[in-house]
Design a protein around this nucleic acid. Structure first.
Lengths: 336, 336
DNA sequence: TTGTAGGCGTTATCAA
DNA sequence: TTGATAACGCCTACAA
């Protein structure tokens, strides 16, 4: 049923080697033979078998991505789309896998490597001393990571300058006249979270504003955490006029805390998020947020990885992308 | 660097065939030999090469999924997670691909088939006379589809009873005393959309309510369409007291149209959505909606496909899942 | 410029 | 119960 190279060579009246050359080294084949072979290929709808090709080339033309425990991965779908689109342009596809139940994450990666399933990985949600980065670096197995993961030896990474994003948020709020600005962040220890907090502090310093420790909240869960932290901030004796958060979900939670108290987000108290998830445009008023360019991130990750695969000895590239402030009603002020 | 079966056989002092048998037909191997071989396997961290195995077995243990043009695919996140998790349980992984730029969708599928890339596909967002369903059915290539796609010959599908969902929405609203109930739907011609409209009509009939044609709006785009349609409905002479929509995004749009007019969703006018996207819980008030059990859908799709691969001649299975009404503030009424 | 042949790592067949 | 050996479909020397 499926065509092999032999079917093509028979039909074109040439050897299999010639067909292979037409496909992989056309310049070695006489023009006439070439067209003859191409016609046979078209007529039969022949495509080289991927498994056979992988076996012989010891390359798979596949990029692996491990889908860890389900969690609110912001804009996973635009990330995947661009990952796949870019991979496709390079002749790769994306292989999704997961740890088997009870299996350690790292073991899942190891298995994939040993089975020769993929040529390299894309990693996301990396953190300080990320074990995956360490393992893959040790193994010398190619990968590209979303996040810098402060690893000693260089590796290909793409990151979004979260600090710059939060500094810009604060600048925006300061320009609106806010002076008591609260922050809702994650617990310390996440690289991306900590950098956003730094950016907040830098922004406050730049605006010559005091960071009031009572206005800093650390919470785990996105929406619920935001709601709880927002409630505490709003119910305090001297509430803030603006609540900055490090994630849209936290911002949504804070907005709900306001609404529940009869306060109008944006008019009475400003709120901001981070990510620009679709929902940021759907809530009322729209959530001012920092847009992560997930499409560019995905594209850059694949490009860096493919570069590395083509040239394993070169020094690994990296890219720091700048996020963009998206201003919506949640920071409009009374005049909205 | 990577271990082969020969490395294992050398270390264990047996032939490669024996190692292969330990892996694939352990009962054929003497217990003593078996442990010897297993030890060698463990010591070397050997895993059979996927490409070689695929080549010989003419099976890939891969399920393909084509990521079409980016669009708001509701909850792609949880769908993928469960797809991959279930596939992993069956020893499969998920291969994501996309049409190359300018390439026809169907051609992308054809290429993957001819290259022997995957054993079967999972299809989502199918519609009446879906060309993919037709092509794959004609080819006899295995797949499982999210949606019934009214194809003459049977194939494995999973669907969510959208009509039942909308009927339940109407029942809920009628019980709250609503009599002028509007509907915001997509243009006719989408299978899932049309069924939801039918469900709306059935619900209205069951509640002995008139369907006022002026209260039926058809729009393309999710959020903006919902906003526009909501605006028209609210600005009409005799506005509805409830707006039912066939998608959360439409509902968010309608909520914003209300807010812009100083109306309180839930208190002044009720709104409902469909899907239970994460954002439905983040808006204020929360959006009453119909939850699609995407996790069950994904799981069932993979199970049906794997069944089919194991038993191509059996009659294809199918599953109709029942969605669940999630009541939130947007239909709470004045007492919220 | 084209064809022959060996090998990529596995599994299946068949002898021993 | 185990071990040679021949595929699986392709690519790449090397020979013609």
């Amino acid at each position: 049923m499926r065509q092999t190279i032999r079917d093509v060579s028979d039909r074109a009246g040439v050897s299999v080697a010639t067909v292979s050359n037409v496909l992989n080294a056309p310049h070695l084949v006489a023009p006439l033979t070439r067209t003859k072979v191409m016609e046979a290929i078209d007529a039969l709808g022949y495509r080289p078998n991927r498994a056979a090709r992988s076996l012989q080339a010891r390359k798979t033309q596949r990029i692996g991505y491990c889908l860890p425990n389900p969690g609110p991965q912001a804009a996973l779908d635009v990330f995947f789309h661009q990952l796949v689109a870019t991979a496709t342009n390079h002749g790769f596809d994306l292989t999704l896998f997961a740890p088997r139940s009870g299996q350690d994450d790292l073991d899942a990666y190891r298995e994939v490597i040993r089975a020769g399933d993929v040529d390299g990985f894309v990693l996301s949600e990396t953190n300080y001393a990320d074990p995956r980065v360490e393992m893959l670096s040790d193994l010398g197995f190619p990968f590209a990571a979303f996040g810098q993961a402060n690893h000693p030896s260089p590796f290909p990474w793409v990151d979004v300058d979260g600090a710059a994003g939060l500094a810009e948020v604060v600048e925006h709020l300061a320009a609106k006249g806010h002076r008591r600005i609260a922050l809702v962040a994650w617990p310390e220890g996440s690289e991306s979270g900590d950098k956003r907090v730094e950016g907040f502090e830098q922004g406050m310093a730049a605006a010559e504003l005091q960071v009031d420790p009572r206005l800093i909240k650390r919470v785990e869960n996105g929406f619920l955490g935001g709601k709880t932290a927002g409630a505490e901030l709003l119910d305090a004796v001297d509430p803030p006029t603006a609540i900055v958060t490090v994630q849209d979900e936290l911002g949504f939670g804070a907005m709900v805390a306001m609404s529940e108290r009869g306060l109008k987000p944006g008019a009475d108290v400003a709120v901001t998020g981070f990510d620009d998830t679709p929902a940021a445009a759907y809530v009322w008023p729209g959530l001012t947020t920092v847009r992560q360019p997930f499409d560019e991130v995905a594209q850059a990750l694949v490009n860096l990885l493919v570069d590395r695969l083509a040239n394993p000895e070169g020094s690994p590239g990296s890219r720091m992308l700048v996020p963009r402030l998206i201003v919506r009603g949640s920071t409009a002020g009374t005049d909205r």
